[in-house]
Design a protein around this nucleic acid. Structure first.
Lengths: 355, 355
DNA sequence: ATGATGTCCGTAAACGTTTACGGCAATCTC
DNA sequence: GAGATTGCCGTAAACGTTTACGGACATCAT
């Protein structure tokens, strides 16, 4: 039976090897010939430990692969090293982008993130999620609430720990403060670009009015027009989908009501309406100018490459993490919103002198 | 001072209200007139407690909003109610889709998820992330490893708790077992579709060979061709980006080497090459048939609507969660991979009888 | 009445840390 | 050289649970 190959679980049969139990602070202490108090001190970079001892302890820690038990620490300090993220389950561009960026920033700041998502109807589910997050010992919570109803649920919920909400254009309450990019500005940028190109008949294919983003982008469109002394044109309210935009645009074509220029509330929306036009021989940008919103991957390779507005999710995540950390530590931080940028490509052109 | 509106933080000024400390099991016990042991029993649905007492305790719990301290529980039981997800930081379609789906499934199964992402170079960072995850007390870890290097780092890492890797076509090791969709099948489906349409000159705009997905999709393309008795045509290896596809396709046009049909490794790739063709008067699908992979949002509204293959991330997440949970509980579960499906739209057509 | 049997409940110890406190040398002060 | 000071370290208690054990009381058969 010699030479039997047992590649892993090598300590399986050893009589007194401690069943792969994680080493504790006491193991370290006895191996280093000190008391657990001393080990705790070096773990926490506390003073009152000589350089020599510190070295020795550190060495033992490395040797036996000791890792601090977070549960025990959390229990006694009730401090935590992770932050919670509550998101809606939607796979849409904005929320997902924010989520990924948040995770990245948190990691760089040394925080783990635990995320929970909720689905419609948002009611108790939001409160429950907040509670669960609290239970897991997060120090603060960031809510990605693109949908108005979800934000309302958050406002109505109660929570011991700091809660920050990322919701475009929503207002802060004493319990939960909000942060977001200045999407209204983004919409203004888009619309203004169209105005600068000489267009006066500028329609809006809006997103869902159940979303803050939809509301705010529409508001920006209106405001830009108003400020330029133009009367807002057609505004159709949809659901962000290419399908809706396609069908709505088809309708416009049938009714011969195709506008000069269109600000689409999202790139996906733009995609749908551009196809509807293409199928009917209406060219973008020659016949109608279009600008989108989001700058999704590939929008630079649409036909035509889409002029759109880009949000900086990394900056957003960075700022909102800063804000949350500030709240957790009782600091006060600057809270001016991030500005999106216009990226101009080929889907909008100078108004043509036709007719 | 009567009637003053103080909607929240109501107990702020009360003299002897315990500074909003979370109630403990002892608080519940004393209020219900039992010992903490009894409360623990009702908390854990243990027997040996009379119906009446159970009711009373439950009522108190509800009244004072008691919630079990997870850290304390974890400390003593060393069991956990959350699972860890390790992902690469890439915002690409596949990984993100998987991530979102995993989170959803986990929540439905009553698990919280804590996610950490790592960036290149994957080396110690992967081991560190695994350790951190372990520290936070997760019961198992799912790694989303689209990139070969990352998977290698996982294979080389060591971890006390079960680790499952989602990596297309990678093999299991004793330490970490893998699971994935059958992307090779997906690629075969796409290629076979082109073959069935009568094409014989079928090129492949491949993804990155640093990705499992890129490798496996290429393998599927080759296999389908071989099985049909056809010799594989041109294969260009790229990086998933529309830009690369665009420039590569342009090159093909210049060299007059545009193939009859193309299987693009991703919808984004398809997007780029279609634009290159469009700019040069080459029509899809009239002049060249294209099928993509991913079925990203909006691909049904590309010009033309893209024939592509769709992965079922929900099913994938469900299965892999099942597998992980099985491993955590020592069960054995079925591990046959999910099959993607072909969704045919307008970008591929019967071979034209030109020339 | 006696012992056996069950039902319900209380108690002690443990999980792995942190923190506050106290103690013992060695060094300094005059 | 006596007292005060400093630098280093050990110890006890606490954090909020779970688990194993044991005890009180009522019920039942004999």
């Amino acid at each position: 039976m010699a030479g039997r190959a047992v590649p892993h679980e090598a300590n399986e049969g050893l009589p007194d090897a401690p069943r792969r139990r994680k080493p504790t602070i006491n193991d370290v202490a006895s191996m280093a010939g000190v008391s657990f108090g001393t080990v705790s001190r070096v773990l926490n970079d506390a003073p009152d430990v000589s350089a020599a001892t510190r070295q020795r302890v550190l060495q033992v820690i490395k040797d036996i692969g000791y890792r601090r038990n977070r549960a025990a620490t959390a229990l006694v300090t009730s401090r935590s090293t992770s932050i919670g993220i509550l998101s809606d389950g939607s796979p849409r561009f904005g929320p997902v982008g924010t989520l990924m960026a948040l995770e990245n920033i948190a990691r760089k700041k040394g925080y783990a993130t635990t995320v929970i998502s909720v689905e419609q109807p948002y009611g108790d589910s939001v409160q429950a999620a907040l509670d669960t997050l609290d239970d897991t010992g997060v120090g603060g919570i960031i809510v990605i609430a693109p949908v108005v109803d979800m934000a309302a649920a958050v406002w109505n919920a109660s929570c011991r720990i700091p809660v920050e909400m990322i919701a475009a254009g929503a207002s802060s309450t004493p319990n939960v403060f909000t942060y977001s990019e200045n999407q209204e500005l983004g919409a203004r940028l888009a619309t203004q670009h169209l105005i600068d190109l000489g267009h006066t008949d500028i329609a809006h294919f809006a997103g869902s009015m159940e979303w803050f983003d939809g509301r705010v982008r529409k508001r920006g469109w209106e405001a830009a027009l108003r400020d330029a002394g133009l009367t807002p044109g057609l505004c159709l309210e949809g659901d962000w989908s290419p399908r809706w935009a396609y069908e709505t645009a088809l309708q416009l074509v049938r009714e011969q009501k195709v506008p000069q220029a269109i600000f689409a509330a999202s790139d996906h929306t733009a995609l749908g309406l551009i196809r509807a036009f293409a199928e009917n021989g209406i060219r973008v940008p020659e016949d109608v100018s279009v600008v989108g919103f989001d700058d999704i991957e590939g929008s630079d390779y649409f036909l035509p490459p889409l002029t759109t507005v880009r949000q900086d999710f990394t900056a957003l995540a960075l700022m909102s993490m800063e804000v949350l950390l500030g709240a957790m530590e009782g600091r006060d931080v600057d809270r001016t919103p991030i500005a999106p940028t216009l990226v101009v490509r080929d889907s909008a052109r100078q108004v043509s002198p036709r007719k």
